[in-house]
Write a protein that binds this DNA or RNA. Sequence first.
DNA 1: TCATAATTTTGACGCGTGTAAAAATATGAC
DNA 2: GTCATATTTTTACACGCGTCAAAATTATGA
Lengths: 352, 352
Amino acid sequence: MVYGVRRSWPMAKPKIKTMKELSETIGISRPTLSRYFRDPSVVRPSTSKKIQERLSEVDYVYNFLTTRQNRKSTELIGVIVPSYKDLFFASLIESIEQSAKDLGYTIITQSSNGDSGVEAHAVRKLRSMSVDGAIVAPIGVAADHDAFAAASEDFPLVFVDSRPAKSMPLADFVGTDNMQSIGAIVEYLCRIGDPPVFLGMPHLNANAEEREHAYRAKMLELNHEAKAIECAGAGGSWEFEAVGYAVMDDCFGRGEFTNSTILCANDRVAIGAIRAANKHGLFSRGGGLRIAGHDDHPLSQYMFPALTTVAQDVEGIADAAIQLVAQRARGGRSTETVEVFLNAAMKPRESA
Amino acid sequence: MVYGVRRSWPMAKPKIKTMKELSETIGISRPTLSRYFRDPSVVRPSTSKKIQERLSEVDYVYNFLTTRQNRKSTELIGVIVPSYKDLFFASLIESIEQSAKDLGYTIITQSSNGDSGVEAHAVRKLRSMSVDGAIVAPIGVAADHDAFAAASEDFPLVFVDSRPAKSMPLADFVGTDNMQSIGAIVEYLCRIGDPPVFLGMPHLNANAEEREHAYRAKMLELNHEAKAIECAGAGGSWEFEAVGYAVMDDCFGRGEFTNSTILCANDRVAIGAIRAANKHGLFSRGGGLRIAGHDDHPLSQYMFPALTTVAQDVEGIADAAIQLVAQRARGGRSTETVEVFLNAAMKPRESA
DNA sequence: TCATAATTTTGACGCGTGTAAAAATATGAC
DNA sequence: GTCATATTTTTACACGCGTCAAAATTATGA
């Protein structure tokens, strides 16, 4: 430890703690000030100008907690993802935050850490914060239904990325159309080379099953035999790279699939698979091995070989989700739910 | 879009909105209930038991906003990072959230998006939320000093990862000892092979300069000539992989450094550099090229070759930072600042 | 059984802001 | 200069919970 001396920083502007105090130093009434903050256009231009001028001369920050307590709407939107340490979710959060800011919402993010107990706790916290709505990338299996059911009574719930379990309260959904995205890459792979085998992801959410199903459907359509690599042994880990690596290292070690085309359920699994392939020298040997992924993970283009994948429309998902919660939060709850499916775009690169 | 019918989910437990209502259905007074929530041990065991029982039969969530407004301490800690889409920061946030939860704090995360204006806005929002303290991974250059100065009057500020600009209000700091971490890897590299040249990161925060300085110091100590690869042309981008790739693709294209040992200022730059090397076939050719990084980025072990690096003690940093803010928030402000430096651990892998 | 300590209840006020209704004032057209 | 209208001020109450003092109740132990 190193010690230093704390310099005292003289405030340039006088600090004002409450709105009442501000209204006094500014020379207008507090309610007028309150109205100004909610919407500057509802006060007389001369008053607005006067407020702005004085405001720039002092250091006043509104009390977030109190304002939200009294408004009918808190303009708070909760976001729950299974993990921050997954660049897909990180990208999603960043896009959501951006879209939300444009609409004047503040985002409260929570990680469920891949655990249904933590997820339920996060949902509960959002309830306690009286959020106007929540966007949830669900764990999928073994979710705490009661927690979500209770929450859905309080505010609109929009699920993203993967669809909630059937037993969950029916809510809106925004995500990629797995049939389209997987269909596109299967078609691409078949067109360029051998039909692919499928390397799934741990069955932690609906995407695991949906993508495998989409793969099988497309293969059937193209008159090819579907084949999935067993990865059940990997259990329920969210460490997708490790799963992909372990499963394929095993296969390659036995000489299996070394010349195959492997379509992975997502890029993180593919990254692990590529690593395994490189360990076994399968790409440098010039064999027929091809590996493809799904999502367009930010680092997929830096893999070697650069990962061929399909890009989810992250911004589109984020934007649609925010629009949907905002609309639900404002315009009363409709009786029917909406499911928005966005298309993904092929990103042909080197790996397949 | 697909439409469905929203099922109504009957609540299993009756919903109770306010503490007053709860106290009535439970049969005790509201102040007692309030005391119970603050600390269950201050009420009589029989009362505590009674409350717990009834509580489990109803659906009551405390009002977060209101409780925080009235407590002297909000038990809220703000966290600001330059980006969510950087797994180092993502790991940091996850660790901070964990450590904070253990101490009963709620985390409010904000991304500054590598922009000083957004950063200042985030700081301001934390002020409006009356957080007990904030942990900030600063942008570094061009920060809004006034925003931080004002904030540091309101609550303790702890900087992490990289030290704030000299002109910033002096606050506590927790981070890796760059002299130690860079020293360790330089020594390792020299011991195993050629002395390294240094590939810096864009000069966006103090680490850029500090790590280069640490490199030069260690090289001097070991009697080797220091040499840094120019990467100024890359400008101020936070897309470190892209920077590393662009700079090294350029070099390798000119035949420079193709057999060198390259120490990168961080793993993300190294990932870009490795990609460039692979593009030019430098690793498969069996030459002397070695690349090393800094941070132990979660994906560094999946690179090909697996990236040799030094692991920052992310959990240690997170924990120390939380401890520090919590301590400052509780025990009044001391006049001296503290700087905590943690050691990093060598992660020798394949790339060097 | 009683004195004493511990706990709970009652009643009240405070936090900083939203918001509504009525009264007062300013604005702008004539 | 006058009047209709738009805006602001005043006054008041509300939000849900923290907190305090005094009174009432209950538990504890000799």
